[in-house]
Simulated scan of single mutants.
Amino acid sequence: MLRRSDRPTLSSNYVVATAAWLTAATLLMILTGAFWVYYESKIILSEQQQQARSQLAEGIGIAMTEGLAVKDFGLLESRLVQALSNPSLESALIVDPDGRALAQVEINDEGLPSPIFDTRSIDLPEATKSPIAFEELGADGRVIAWQPVTAGTLLGWLSLRFAYDETELILAELGRKAFFLTLTITLILLGLFALILRRAYRVIVENEVQLRRANQSLKDAAEHDPLTRLPNRAALTNMLQTWLDEANRHKLGMAVVFLDLDGFKPLNDTHGHRFGDKVLIWVAQALKQSARQEDFIARYGGDEFIILLHEVSNMDEISPLLRRVLKRLTQTFEIDSIQARLGSSIGVAVYPLHGRSANELLVKADQAMYEAKAAGGNQWAVWTRLSS
């Protein structure tokens, strides 16, 4: 028979029950926090990667539609190399609708993106019969994302292969520690709980940094020309519409300057495409030096460039820039010990005088450019009804 002093008292039972409930509650918080970190990270990563993949596929589709993949050496490989700066990717592939490889880049043994010159056909997944993005698991359990490349019609598929996600290993470690903590006393459990919260915070911060870098890398590949590093046509379309909306709200003027190089094709044919690429890079730098800081310069395609002029309404404000551009581009320059000269035909369309929509201004600036070229080139022309 137990003595009175040996019997559990109400207070001691309460302490034991409280400790048990505290242990269970702490464990539940640990598991809830760990899985919250995991699923929130997965949701954010999935949404941002899907958006970035769509933007990359859109840029590839524009390039394939314009034929730039044929004209500019290594254009598709360059886009994939930029995409693989995302540390969670280990390979990228572009195939046509029949499964023939158009471009392939993989991470080599040195951890750097490397083009794979292999045009073999592959067996496309059954899901590619519909032009809808999807994901599948490879034979080794890694995720493979398939994104359709379209431009009115299906041009092919962009396939991105992901490396193992480090978050999986972190979750396994969290689960192991959480199980171990159930066997310890409440004080030790609370101490470890604080350490796990610190670990979870680090995971969130590191994952956010990784997501930002990955998103920025894919966005940059989708919105910039890989050769000149200027914004491409997709970025130009977005910026032009943004400026038009602003100009309409605040009753401001703006202008679209359409520039086509004179004499570029003979240089490209005579000295080769690599020399031509370097000339285009030189032109991009020359335009940056000639334009104002607030202006927007984009490569429209081939040897065509667009300059958007902000808050201008008449030729008195536009002419100084056009003179600087013509003077800069007609100067003799030297590349690879070869001296060369260019000219340019420039067309101008002013908002709202010549049009109010993005497409209307681009079309009229293009028509004015051809008028300048027909007049002998190396000059500018402002759109008139005769231009069309």
Rank of each mutant, 00 (worst) to 15 (best):
E136G: 12
V257A: 11
R176A: 11
W383Y: 15
F264C: 01
I30G: 00
I307D: 02
L183R: 14
A63P: 00
I204S: 03
K364I: 08
I62G: 05
L28M: 10
L211T: 07
W21K: 07
R4Y: 03
N108V: 08
S54Y: 12
L259T: 08
V203P: 02
A235T: 07
G74Q: 06
A52Q: 09
V16I: 14
R198W: 11
A163E: 10
G156F: 08
L189M: 15
A298Q: 08
D260F: 05
G111T: 11
K129Y: 02
R100D: 02
S357Q: 15
V348K: 00
G272W: 00
T26D: 11
T332P: 02
Q241D: 15
D295F: 11
A63K: 04
F296V: 13
A24R: 15
E135I: 04
R3H: 02
S319Y: 13
Q339P: 10
M369G: 05
L321R: 04
K364P: 12
L252S: 01
T32V: 04
T330Y: 01
V143S: 15
Y370F: 12
I335V: 14
R341S: 15
A163N: 06
V16F: 12
R7G: 00
G99E: 06
F117S: 05
R292Y: 03
L75I: 04
I346E: 07
N314V: 03
N232E: 05
A63F: 08
M64W: 07
D98M: 11
D123C: 09
K42C: 00
